[in-house]
Computed example of a mutant assay.
Amino acid sequence: MPFHSRSCLAIFITSMLMLTGCQTPSLASKTSSPNIGNNDSQTVSYNQFSLQGKIGVKTPQQSGSAFFTWIQQEEQFDIELSGILGIGKTQITGEPGKVELNSSRTGLISAESPEELLLLATGWNAPITHIIDWVQARPATLETEILKDNMQRPIQFIEDGWTVDLSYKDEAVLPNRLVLKQALDSNQENRITMIIQNR
């Protein structure tokens, strides 16, 4: 794969996480997490969490994966990715009005929003700003179609052109695996897989 393609994919993967950082909260995401259990130790405050795991992105043209550490403190975030197609460690930081991506291969890229950075760096427009809600097992909008399991945990969201499948470990109330799918023409799709190893 040419370096340019590897760089674009690296930025695309980082943007999948970055796009959650500076979103304007929707009505649904201002509410508390779904009442799907009484285990307070697994309850996550809105916009405040720490995740570690692996993310993979597969498009009709490219695929790749990276390990991530994601720290979210309200409107500020710090994401570190490693092992991404030889690009090296990538650091993404953000706050309202300022998002920066920095790696030894791509250098420093700045923008006012994650969406702008993704468009600037790759030419792609991927409206997936809802990941911050999905990793907390809650819908991002009021128009979401929700499928639940027998414990009343969401196991599928359908919203804004994405289908999100959520998997849980044992009786956990927060997912440890998410598969995000966006249908494309000719029966193709964009697919993002997030495996959360630590919360």
Rank of each mutant, 00 (worst) to 15 (best):
residue 86 G to S: 02
residue 115 E to R: 03
residue 2 P to T: 14
residue 167 S to P: 02
residue 76 Q to E: 13
residue 48 Q to Y: 14
residue 102 N to C: 07
residue 126 A to Y: 14
residue 72 Q to P: 05
residue 164 V to H: 08
residue 168 Y to P: 03
residue 63 S to W: 14
residue 80 E to N: 09
residue 146 I to C: 09
residue 21 G to K: 05
residue 148 K to T: 15
residue 144 T to C: 14
residue 98 K to N: 14
residue 160 D to H: 04
residue 26 S to Y: 09
residue 150 N to K: 15
residue 80 E to D: 11
residue 196 I to H: 06
residue 22 C to F: 00
residue 89 K to M: 07
residue 44 V to C: 13
residue 108 L to H: 04
residue 116 E to K: 14
residue 157 F to K: 09
residue 160 D to C: 04
residue 27 L to E: 07
residue 17 L to E: 00
residue 115 E to V: 06
residue 4 H to K: 13
residue 199 R to F: 12
residue 96 P to C: 05
residue 133 D to V: 11
residue 25 P to D: 14
residue 11 I to T: 10
residue 195 I to R: 06
residue 102 N to D: 08
residue 114 P to A: 12
residue 117 L to N: 00
residue 107 G to Q: 08
residue 99 V to T: 12
residue 122 T to M: 02
residue 3 F to A: 11
residue 87 I to N: 08
residue 32 S to Y: 07
residue 95 E to W: 03
residue 69 T to I: 09
residue 190 N to C: 07
residue 138 R to N: 05
residue 91 Q to L: 12
residue 93 T to Q: 11
residue 73 Q to E: 05
residue 65 S to Q: 10
residue 198 N to T: 15
residue 94 G to W: 15
residue 194 M to Q: 05
residue 166 L to P: 02
residue 84 I to R: 07
residue 109 I to G: 00
residue 15 S to D: 01
residue 25 P to V: 12
residue 100 E to D: 13
residue 119 L to T: 09
residue 51 L to Y: 05
residue 180 L to E: 03
residue 143 E to H: 07
residue 40 D to P: 07
residue 8 C to N: 11
residue 26 S to F: 08
residue 147 L to E: 13
residue 169 K to R: 14
residue 162 W to K: 03
residue 17 L to T: 01
residue 2 P to F: 03
residue 31 T to F: 09
residue 79 I to Y: 01
residue 171 E to I: 15
residue 11 I to A: 14
residue 174 L to P: 00
residue 49 F to K: 04
residue 199 R to Q: 12
residue 178 L to M: 12
residue 87 I to F: 01
residue 96 P to G: 04
residue 109 I to F: 04
residue 132 I to L: 02
residue 21 G to D: 11
residue 142 L to F: 01
residue 167 S to H: 11
residue 163 T to V: 14
residue 95 E to Y: 04
residue 109 I to Q: 03
residue 180 L to R: 00
residue 95 E to F: 04
residue 160 D to L: 08
residue 80 E to Y: 00
residue 165 D to A: 10
residue 21 G to A: 12
residue 161 G to E: 12
residue 30 K to E: 13
residue 157 F to L: 06
residue 196 I to Y: 05
residue 37 G to I: 09
residue 130 H to E: 13
residue 143 E to C: 05
residue 79 I to F: 02
residue 48 Q to G: 01
residue 95 E to A: 07
residue 49 F to W: 10
residue 197 Q to C: 04
residue 142 L to S: 07
residue 117 L to D: 01
residue 9 L to N: 01
residue 119 L to I: 06
residue 9 L to H: 08
residue 170 D to A: 12
residue 65 S to V: 03
residue 12 F to R: 07
residue 74 E to R: 09
residue 66 A to R: 02
residue 28 A to T: 14
residue 149 D to M: 10
residue 88 G to T: 04
